[in-house]
Write a protein that binds this DNA or RNA. Structure first.
Length: 767
DNA sequence: CGGACGATCCTTTTT
DNA sequence: GGATCGTCCG
């Protein structure tokens, strides 16, 4: 431990060793925050604190896993494995399962994801005969979510004049009633949504002091990462748990608070001193990640915001390059300019592609960059958007698994009651739903009720229904006697999905089968891992893990050299050598949805700050002058945020008229814009041609290297000897498909010949 | 009842 | 451009 302390600067070391009492660590971007958290925990452990007495709450599961690994490297895996570490949602879901009976939930409760919640809202609207044109399910859900995160339950909602008025103002006066029904429906279904996990934890601690006391005594040391992004519900959980021992350490950066749309309260970090007047404050201000230019540019951005905790982030790294600004003629051109820049930098310095990240405001922007990367044969990894677990076939199978665990789960039931098609159509389902609503029970309870025939189904339909309930009950009986993998295998082979997909001979159908297979691998790995750790490996546990995965938690393939594409939000906490912040335009970033008013705008600016501070070596900002929106192109202007950067740190040579064009004409709209555009068009064009030419030549020079790079990277070609975790040794006998869906046909020594999708199969290359 | 094909609406960010 | 919803027809 001694030598670890020596790796820290003064402020970091103080924050690590001052373990007793409340501490607030204000950690500027890149200031070694994770390092402090890691060492602090390791330090506690070395001082003899038992790992199960430490609760560490992180923002993503990935962050937790990485920290656990690092701590494991210091104090040993076994010790680190016993820490209570994870996201708020996963840690408290775990506790809620143990204490479920107190709050009248089955311990096998289902966790509804956003899609389930939305679908439930829709059926409630239907039941209430409200058109979802007027009541947008998304909007309703966000209001309910906001209420829950403020711990406002339906009865209180009904008395909350403020909320009721706001609802009336937005012409959704019935949110209150929808909220009541939604809550009731979730309870009946034995389901919790994301917000419920936190809400129910609060209710548990509020209503059962003994239970609270138990956890207060257990968690002698509490650490919270990204504290600026906690909501009221989370804040209260921490406050209650910390009440007894008061050893609470929160780490965060008010300048990086970017989740208010999810209920995060920046005040939590600002008010820490009110709750703990005897707190100790540690400021980490030295940035070790970025060059001076980047840090200075970022500081100049954030200085445009009011109200923040005073701190001076500085860097002693080299001065570095200035921030480069690229102006593109169109969004498509923007893609090419950025990809060209990546090509030239990666080839010039021989850097791995994993050193490059393209960050955007909205997921929809990814497509353009994907295409540009594909055309240049650059491999990429895209985060967010459709993750593995959101694919249709995967969700279908998961719905069966969920039903087996909890047949009252209405959303899962509706998903698969007629998939694969078994002749239970819309009309039948509607009848069932009505009967359920009229009697205040779940669809499953209608189905299994002896009075079912009295609902007037014909005998054929009745038969189909009973065969469905029979199948699900059969699955349920397997749960107590089998582990997650065995149950899943059984369900896959019997539920009919596989048969259905096998009939689809298209490429896509095959991929789907492979995806199911991959899920099966996942369950298998899960079950084995849990058994090794001596923990339970039932389906309930697997489903919990899956439903709380974040988009960052997917396959680990960081050994591969790929350009990273993600939203700025998901980039929080990460770092890259070269960062491209793209689409920095009015109408896109800042997002018009955030309102151009103070609060919303300041959060968008913090988001910009987060984007820029992800970079170690250089930042490139790009924007287009025209962009496709709604299928038609419109002219746009550079973002006001560009003006926030002190010109001293900008290299605008790629970009002559930027600051003239930006002036104070922002609000004057189209007229001015098109004027600018025409005025500059000849110069514009020349520059455009120049970059075009530049691109072509670069591409010619570089592409052969890059292509070779890809092969080196994935390293797999016909004749390669590979090893698969399950199938063992084999030889690649064929390759098929286009990136990113390249498949390898592998002849395994002991497992026969298999088609494997490279992006999923974890193939180790032997030769 | 189920699949196919148009019209329509949209778009922030996510545990 | 694209996902979702409703309608129409077999």
């Amino acid at each position: 431990m001694q030598n670890y302390l020596e790796q820290l600067n003064g402020a970091q070391r103080d924050a690590v060793i001052s373990t007793e009492g409340p501490s607030l660590v204000i950690a500027g971007a890149g200031s070694g925050k994770t390092r402090v958290l890691t060492y602090r925990i390791a330090h506690l452990l070395e001082q003899g604190v038992a790992p199960w007495n430490i609760l560490a709450l992180t923002f993503t599961n990935k962050a937790a896993r990485e920290m656990k690994d690092r701590i494991g490297g210091i104090v040993g895996k076994n010790v680190a494995g016993r820490l209570w570490m994870g996201t708020f949602h996963s840690v408290f879901a775990r506790i809620l399962r143990v204490e479920a009976e107190y709050i009248k939930f089955p311990s096998s409760f289902t966790i509804y994801d956003a899609a389930d919640s939305k679908s439930l809202i829709k059926s409630i609207l239907k039941e209430m005969q409200i058109r979802d044109k007027e009541y947008k399910p998304g909007l309703i859900l966000s209001r309910i979510s906001a209420a829950k995160n403020d711990l406002v339950l339906p009865p209180a909602y009904g008395k909350d004049q403020h909320r009721l008025m706001a609802d009336r103002a937005s012409k959704v006066a019935k949110v209150y009633e929808i909220y009541m029904r939604y809550m009731r429906s979730c309870v009946k279904a034995g389901a919790m949504d994301f917000d419920d996990l936190l809400l129910q934890t609060n209710l548990l601690f509020r209503d059962f002091p003994d239970v609270l006391a138990k956890y207060q005594q257990q968690f002698r040391y509490i650490l919270v990462d990204e504290y600026q992004d906690t909501n009221f519900s989370q804040y209260l959980i921490v406050r209650k748990l910390a009440e007894l021992n008061r050893n609470v350490c929160v780490v965060g950066d008010d300048a990086q608070s970017i989740y208010s749309f999810r209920g995060a309260k920046i005040e939590n970090i600002l008010n820490f001193r009110n709750d703990y007047p005897d707190y100790k404050l540690f400021k980490l201000e030295q940035n070790y990640r970025s060059t001076q230019n980047i840090v200075n540019a970022a500081n100049s951005i954030i200085s445009n915001n009011k109200g923040q905790i005073r701190k001076v982030v500085f860097s002693e790294n080299e001065e570095g390059e200035k921030i480069k600004v690229l102006e593109a003629y169109s969004d498509i051109e923007e893609g090419f300019l950025v990809v060209n820049d990546i090509l030239s930098r990666s080839s010039k310095d021989g850097r791995s592609l994993s050193d490059f990240a393209i960050l955007y405001r909205t997921n929809a922007q990814s497509r353009i960059f994907e295409e540009a990367l594909r055309k240049n044969n650059l491999p990429y990894r895209i985060y967010g958007g459709l993750s593995f677990y959101q694919r249709k076939e995967i969700k279908d199978l998961l719905a069966y698994l969920r039903l087996a665990v909890n047949p009252r789960d209405g959303e899962a039931l509706k998903r698969v009651i007629n998939y694969p098609a078994r002749g239970i159509g819309k009309t039948t389902l509607e009848k069932l739903e009505r009967a359920a609503a009229d009697n205040g029970i779940t669809i499953w309870e209608v189905l299994t009720n002896p009075a079912l025939p009295s609902l007037g189904f014909n005998s054929g339909t009745l038969k189909k229904l009973s065969s469905f309930t029979g199948m699900i009950s059969g699955f349920s009986r397997l749960i107590p006697v089998m582990d997650a993998y065995q149950v899943t295998t059984e369900i896959v082979s019997q539920c009919g999905i596989l048969k259905e997909l096998h009939q689809d001979k298209s490429q896509e159908g095959q991929t789907r089968v492979e995806n199911l297979d991959e899920l099966l691998n996942g369950v298998r790995d899960f079950a084995e891992e849990r058994k090794e750790m001596g923990e339970e490996s039932t389906l309930v546990h697997f489903l919990e893990e899956v439903s709380l995965l974040t988009d960052q938690d997917g396959e680990d393939e960081d050994d591969l050299s790929k350009v990273t594409l993600m939203t700025i939000h998901s980039a929080k906490g990460l770092e890259f050598g070269s960062v491209y912040v793209v689409g920095v335009e009015e109408g896109l970033f800042p997002s018009p949805m955030s309102g151009s008013s103070g609060q919303g705008l300041e959060e968008e600016r913090r988001l910009f700050y987060v984007a820029v501070t992800r970079a170690e070596k250089n930042v490139t900002i790009s924007y287009a002058r025209s962009r496709f929106k709604y299928g038609e192109h419109s002219f746009v202007t550079a973002s006001r945020f560009l003006k926030d950067i002190d010109v001293a740190y900008i290299d605008d040579s790629g970009k002559s008229n930027l600051f003239k064009g930006l002036g104070n004409s922002r609000s004057s709209g189209m007229q001015k814009r098109s004027f600018d555009f025409n005025r500059k068009s000849s110069g514009e064009k020349r520059k455009f041609e120049y970059t075009q030419r530049n691109k072509t030549s670069l591409h010619q020079v570089v592409s052969s290297d890059i292509k070779k790079g890809i092969n080196d990277v994935s390293g797999i070609s016909i004749g390669s000897k590979v090893e698969h975790e399950r199938f063992g040794l084999g030889e690649v006998v064929g390759m098929d498909g286009e990136f990113p869906n390249v498949k390898a046909k592998v002849a395994f020594e002991n497992a026969g010949t298999k088609q494997l999708l490279l992006k999923f199969a974890k193939l180790k290359i032997l030769r």
